[in-house]
Design a protein around this nucleic acid. Structure first.
Length: 653
DNA sequence: TTACGTCCACTTTTT
DNA sequence: GTGGACGTAA
């Protein structure tokens, strides 16, 4: 593998420092450098199984493994690689006892939210519910506090403006939530990291054993690690003689996960926090042309923070980025679709195009336009759980069959059937959780739902095929059809999804393993993976896009109210993070960058009738120097081209 | 007790 | 355009 001098200095580092931080700007070959490091370490005689590679997102983990496989072949399989969550869970599954995670089921965010909502409903009186923070909000608070290693009350006092009573009730709800998770043997995403840290910090022998397994720990996207994850790294590297060496790669200008507790002091204070550490830099950009980097550099230079980034294009000059204005988001979507089609007809592959969106929601209009023109696309990112409702139903059947105590799964499964609602389901769940560990839940169903043979049969069928996940899912899907074909439209196509799910289950030896793997890596992503080989346009959220690139990139909806997002206005740090999000979006493009925006979403700037003022400039591209882009606009757009006689109608009530 | 209608506020990003 | 809280008919 070829590395430039900067990259090879990092990958082949053999200096006196024990730990190394590589500050790598966008497109400077971060992944390449990590892989180069792994190759080097193996050449130097480090056993591959003694290397641990941690990433932040599943996507990054997959990408890294794929590229590693291409470079070193089967040796890649012996390297432990995955997300922080994946790694911690793997360890805890091997030695569950000291971590206190025996028999605990992992629940995804959706389930965590349902559980919290259940408790919120139990603890609040009727009239109180309306103005009290919703389950999703409460979960955000809990999650943030936990990931930042903050006491919940301290966090709430510092970062929210809740009144004393609300705060007290919220803390009470949080305590009940923690208790309920223990009672029902649940682990949420945050518990995975939290219990792991607790386990190793309170047990020196255990920590030494785990830390002793690895000679080197490589961390990608270091700027996105949060305080809880920092403690994991610390525990793995610290213990005197046997600890691992760190090799971390990151870019503070691409830190976009502060909402999840990411703390780029992990990067800034890297050397100060560790005993023996050094820092190296990568500054040569290999991805984009200089015109694209110019606009990205300009964006960072506008900030009050000194990012100290001035990306230089190794490839030299190319086309100027294009900025296009539209009257409405529909025009915007239609134009992008047409432009894509034009390029395709001119011979470009669909796969050379990527559309970056701020949120899953803002991609909807474009999806419509793409479908209309029969343009193949894949959507990456966002939580498209809505479509997966039927998938979750089937999974809840599996989970219910595995554990009588899985309250959330039972509630969901039971409510699939007609004439069973909240009340009946809750009654049955009460009986189930009172059951002796050895008893079969079918007994409860026989007495409580004597006439509902089909409800029981579903559970019985799955129990029968516990060790054949593929068959279990196939049979379960057919059976669930009896309950769900009425409830959902297009049941046939949904059934096809479920069959796909059972295909995926072929790789697993038992149902429990499959369900757990799915929870950490839902099928929506695996489906995306399936289409990855096919030639299609990629529609992707900026957050998911970090680390990816494409020859032609469209940044959609780059208008006031979006960058920075209106929800961040008024919070200096949050607004700054929005700048970095836009920076990540702009630096994905290799040859052509097309920035589009539309005027009809401006109302999002108005909140409660008044204009929300930002701390800094409330729109990042407001003072964009005109020589940096090629400007076009389609249709009438307020503020450009003089307006129209029809404007006189605007003040009509 | 379930299923359905109505009014309301809200509409980011990921493990 | 949607999901949650709440009221009401079968």
């Amino acid at each position: 593998m070829k590395l430039n001098p900067e990259q090879s200095a990092a990958a082949h580092y053999q200096g006196s420092a024990r730990h190394l931080l590589v500050l790598a700007g966008a497109g400077t070959g971060k992944t390449r450098t990590i892989i180069g490091r792994i190759l080097f370490l193996i050449q130097q005689g480090a056993p591959a199984e003694r290397l641990l590679m941690l990433t932040f997102t599943r996507r990054a983990a997959k990408e890294m493994l794929l590229r590693l496989h291409n470079e070193v072949g089967n040796v890649a399989d012996s390297i432990t690689a995955g997300t922080f969550h994946h790694f911690c869970l793997q360890v805890m599954r091997r030695v569950p006892k000291p971590f206190g995670v025996e028999e605990r089921t992992v629940i995804d965010r959706d389930d965590a939210q349902s559980l919290l909502q259940l408790i919120r409903g139990e603890r609040l009186k009727k009239g109180e519910k309306r103005d009290f923070p919703k389950a999703a909000t409460i979960l955000n608070y809990l999650s943030y506090a936990k990931n930042c290693c903050l006491d919940l009350q301290d966090y709430l006092l510092q970062f929210t403006e809740l009144d004393d009573n609300t705060m007290a009730r919220l803390i009470e709800i949080a305590q009940h939530y923690e208790q309920r998770k223990r009672e029902r043997h649940y682990l949420d995403y945050d518990d995975i990291l939290h219990l792991f840290v607790q386990g190793i910090e309170n047990n020196d022998k255990l920590r030494e054993r785990i830390a002793g397994l690895y000679q080197h720990v490589l961390v990608d996207e270091m700027q996105d690690t949060n305080p809880l994850q920092w403690r994991i790294l610390q525990a793995l590297t610290q213990p005197g003689t046997a600890g691992a060496k760190l090799f971390c790669v990151g870019d503070d200008a691409q830190s976009i996960y502060a909402f999840r507790g990411a703390d780029f002091r992990n990067v800034h204070e890297f050397e100060a926090r560790l005993d023996s550490a050094a820092t190296l830099k990568l500054q040569e950009n290999y991805r984009s042309t200089q015109e694209i980097l110019d606009i990205a550099n300009w964006l960072l230079a506008q900030s009050h923070i000194a990012y100290d980034k001035d990306l230089h294009a190794h490839r030299g000059r190319g086309l100027k980025p294009v900025l296009v204005d539209f009257e409405s988001k529909f025009d915007e979507a239609a134009w992008i679709a047409a432009d894509l089609q034009e390029r395709h007809e001119a011979g470009a592959g669909w796969r050379d195009h990527m559309v970056l969106v701020r949120s899953a929601w803002s991609a909807k209009t474009l999806e419509g336009a793409l479908i209309e023109r029969n343009i193949p696309y894949q959507f990456v990112g966002g939580t498209s759980l809505l479509e997966a409702a039927h998938v979750k139903d089937l999974l809840s059947l599996c989970r219910a069959a595995i554990s009588a105590y899985d309250e959330l799964a039972w509630m969901r499964y039971l409510k699939c059937w007609p004439r069973i609602g909240d009340a009946t389901a809750a009654r049955i769940v009460q009986q189930l959780i009172a059951l002796e560990p050895a008893a079969n839940p079918l007994q409860v169903l026989e007495s409580a739902l004597a006439k509902r043979e089909d409800v029981r049969q579903g559970i019985a069928l799955i129990q029968q095929y516990r060790s054949e996940p593929n068959t279990a899912l196939k049979v379960g899907a057919e059976h669930l059809g009896k309950a769900l074909s009425q409830r959902y439209d297009r049941w046939e196509s949904r059934l096809a999804d479920l069959r796909l799910l059972s295909e995926l289950a072929l790789r697993y030896k038992d149902l429990l393993g499959f369900v757990e793997a799915y929870t950490l890596d839902p099928v929506s992503n695996s489906e995306a993976e399936k289409t990855e080989q096919e030639d299609c346009v990629t529609l992707i959220t900026v957050h998911s896009a970090k680390g990816t690139e494409a020859p032609v990139c469209y940044c959609l909806g780059v208008q006031p109210g979006m960058y920075p997002h209106m929800r961040s206005l008024g919070d200096r740090d949050a607004e700054e993070e929005e700048r970095r999000i836009l920076y990540v979006a702009l630096t994905r493009a290799q040859n052509e960058l097309i920035i589009t925006r539309s005027g009809d979403d401006n109302r999002t700037l108005f909140h409660g009738g008044s204009f929300v003022q930002g701390v800094g400039s409330s729109y990042f591209l407001e003072y964009l120097p005109s020589e940096l882009v090629e400007y076009q606009h389609y249709g009438y757009h307020q503020g450009h081209g003089g307006g129209s006689i029809l404007d006189e109608l605007l003040d009509f009530d």
